[in-house]
């Protein structure tokens, strides 16, 4: 955090951005594996049908394709950790990079374990949840290695501190909303309530088995909570800090994404979990989380001095 002792490394920042882009593609590839029902198309791990590169047919295209993209991201992350260690002066940024590497390696193991154990919900959800955490690591690295973060480090603005606390709370809330969505998806409860906004034609479900409870929590309670809070914080930021680009743009982006995400959620139900809306719903959730994370991190950076004094 000591900006004075840090120097902007454009190549490191670009490398982190490329890794972030590839991670986003990886999230889409992973979402497609589940959406197309291809999770067990390759029954073995770490090899695929005993080979490094099997015939890319049917579900193998999605599952092995996911493994290939994952391998690329893992290699990029190894490079990112080493490169950060070499050129970065801030110790906490180095730790962040190595943490990202640890996360992606653990993620690979979880991916393998879920295949070998035939997709137990707990492991599949852990795989989905860690994917988002890894993405957050890479997004954070991309942000903290940026020119704005490093060279604009002494810039501070007056605030009551509400924004940063709210941004952090909403970011954590979105993460848990994603986790509930992952549990719903990997438990096969995605259509436990087949309609929206009504529940089997009624305002509330008549019965509340676990499947309905989870789906209702994700598609109604969590969705409305996230929609309301993201719009509230975006309105607050965009009206009070219009000229503070590092707050304005992530907030505006989050406001757009949260509406898109809700629309996609409705599409997922109305199309009975059609492949494209379902997969795009997953990555839009990741993009929303990333936007709120950037807003949170920037708000902590900008409001830090005032909070200390």
């Amino acid at each position: 955090m000591n900006n004075a002792s840090s120097n902007y490394q454009p190549s490191l920042h670009r490398y982190a951005l490329i890794t972030a882009g590839c991670t986003f593609v990886l999230l889409l590839a992973g979402a497609l594996v589940t959406s197309t029902g291809s999770s067990l198309a390759v029954p073995d791990w770490p090899l695929s049908f005993g080979k490094f590169f099997p015939e890319m047919r049917g579900g193998v295209l999605f599952e092995h394709g996911h493994r290939m993209v994952a391998g690329t991201v893992a290699l990029l992350t190894v490079g990112l950790a080493i490169y950060t260690q070499m050129v970065e002066k801030r110790a906490w940024v180095k730790k962040l990079a190595w943490s990202a590497l640890g996360a992606v390696l653990l993620q690979a193991v979880l991916g393998g374990v879920t295949v070998l154990l035939h997709l137990p919900t707990e492991v599949s959800v852990a795989h989905a949840g860690l994917a988002q955490i890894f993405f957050c690591f890479i997004i954070s690295l991309s942000l903290v290695t940026s020119k704005t973060w490093i060279e604009d480090g002494d810039h501070r603005i007056q605030s009551t501190g509400t924004i940063r606390k709210a941004a952090l709370t909403v970011t954590v809330l979105i993460y848990f909303q994603i986790l509930v969505g992952a549990v719903t998806r990997h438990s096969g409860f995605g259509l436990a309530i087949p309609d929206w906004p009504l529940s089997n034609g009624q305002l509330l479900p008549a019965d509340w088995p676990l499947a309905v409870l989870l789906q209702f929590s994700h598609t109604r309670i969590g969705a409305f909570l996230v929609l309301g809070l993201v719009n509230w914080i975006a309105f607050k930021v965009c009206t009070q800090y219009t000229h503070e680009k590092s707050l304005f743009w992530p907030a505006a982006n989050a406001a757009l994404l949260v509406w898109l995400q809700c629309f996609l959620g409705i599409l997922v139900i109305s199309t009975e979990k059609s492949i494209i809306p379902t997969s795009v719903h997953v990555i839009t959730g990741a993009a929303l989380l990333a936007s709120m994370l950037v807003l949170t991190l920037n708000s902590f950076r900008l409001f830090q001095k005032e909070s200390v004094s």
Partner: peptide
């Protein structure tokens, strides 16, 4: 300092690993 705590929070976010054995 607070940013470090925030990142640490993200790193230890909960993962339910209770695979039956």
């Amino acid at each position: 300092m607070e940013l470090k705590k925030l990142l640490a929070l993200l790193a230890i976010a909960s993962l339910g690993l209770t695979a039956g054995c």
